[in-house]
Design a binder for these strands. Structure first.
Lengths: 190, 190
DNA sequence: CGGTCTCTTGACGGAGTTCAAAGCTAGTGG
DNA sequence: CCACTAGCTTTGAACTCCGTCAAGAGACCG
């Protein structure tokens, strides 16, 4: 049984036939490490569901420094939803930071899927509502803790993830420089 | 024609009868200035739609300083979606910062509404997807610009809003102290 | 009016950045 | 399977943005 099926069934009930039909709208994509799925000034064609591996979304600031806004691991959805919804040019890059297996849903396919399977509106509503809730929690988080506390928290709660991604990506996600992250790491180990 | 009706009709089609039925699930609430709609450690009972006025969501840090995570003006939805969805205790306050007219939807009513009117799943999916997209844009924003640039941008693009809310709320939303905001404001005027 | 909120101003301090250089690590081709 | 290189991480010194504290000036309600 695949991951996406399980994820969908957490929120709504579908028959086997319905599930098979739903899955037919997706494209399975295998990526290499560091492969780019979206580049700046392209339209974000897909809404991605991660089966295995890890994606990140980032942009370049005016000095050419990459800044990570989001990671997505197994069972997470990721897309530039502004670009995806409006079919406008994106300001982001989406990159697989490990060899990954993902399922892609194009905008037209998503529309067709939702027309064909009304219940999937509820599924996607739940996915977005949950993401919206998570963004509120993160907003609190950012304002409540210093960068050092944020890193410490991350380090304590997701040690395997800290191992999994390069430091400089984590630093840019936490909004600090790699140099400062290195300093914090040294402080914690001691 | 009320604001919410118009907002719903931007995303889906409903007959007049359906619209009337949909609206019957909401409670209209009139607030005074500074009235609290949600307090820390309460369950966030309502999903709020702002007809007129302005709400903000904030929390208290451990020093007792209020930190604003979100504003909501006319035609915006606001709730602590984590607390609302799980019916768990909230860490936030929601406050009307002006006399406001809002429509409240309790969690049980939202569930009933969505069961009764399947099309509303699409509406709420769109609302949350749009909010999700906006949170991604804000994430970029926060990482891309210094606090000074963020304030300047805010000041240039939403001058009426800068007038409308007290400085200290705006400061806490931008993640700076009122003192520093005052300094920036002085810099800009000159 | 009077008192409490709100906004401003300035001196000082500290968290986090920048820049430069050296040390590591991992992927690549021979 | 080793050697080389490019990319990643660490270290340290100087600097800057922004917070803290304190004190005063407005502004808004009862």
């Amino acid at each position: 049984m695949m991951q996406l099926e399980q994820h969908i069934l957490k929120f709504i009930s579908l028959t086997d036939d319905e599930l098979q039909s739903v899955l037919s709208y997706f494209t399975r994509i295998e990526t290499k490490k560091k492969e780019l799925l979206l580049q700046e000034s392209q339209v974000c064609r897909y809404n991605y569901f991660v089966e295995s591996g890890c994606l990140r979304m980032y942009f370049m600031d005016d000095k050419g420094v990459e800044k990570t806004v989001q990671f997505a691991i197994e069972n997470w959805w990721l897309s530039d939803y502004f670009s995806f919804q409006k079919q406008s040019n994106s300001e982001f890059y989406i990159q697989a930071i490990e060899p990954s297996t993902i399922l892609g849903l194009t905008f037209p396919n998503q529309e067709k899927l939702l027309t064909e399977h009304q219940k999937m509106e509820r599924y996607f509503r739940m996915v977005h509502q949950t993401a919206h809730a998570a963004s509120q929690v993160r907003a609190k988080y950012n304002k409540d803790f210093s960068r050092e506390e944020q890193f410490r928290h991350f380090y304590d709660n997701f040690p395997e993830f800290v191992q999994r991604v390069p430091q400089y990506m984590l630093a840019s996600y936490l909004g600090i420089t790699p140099e400062y992250l290195s300093e914090l790491r040294a402080k914690i180990v001691s």
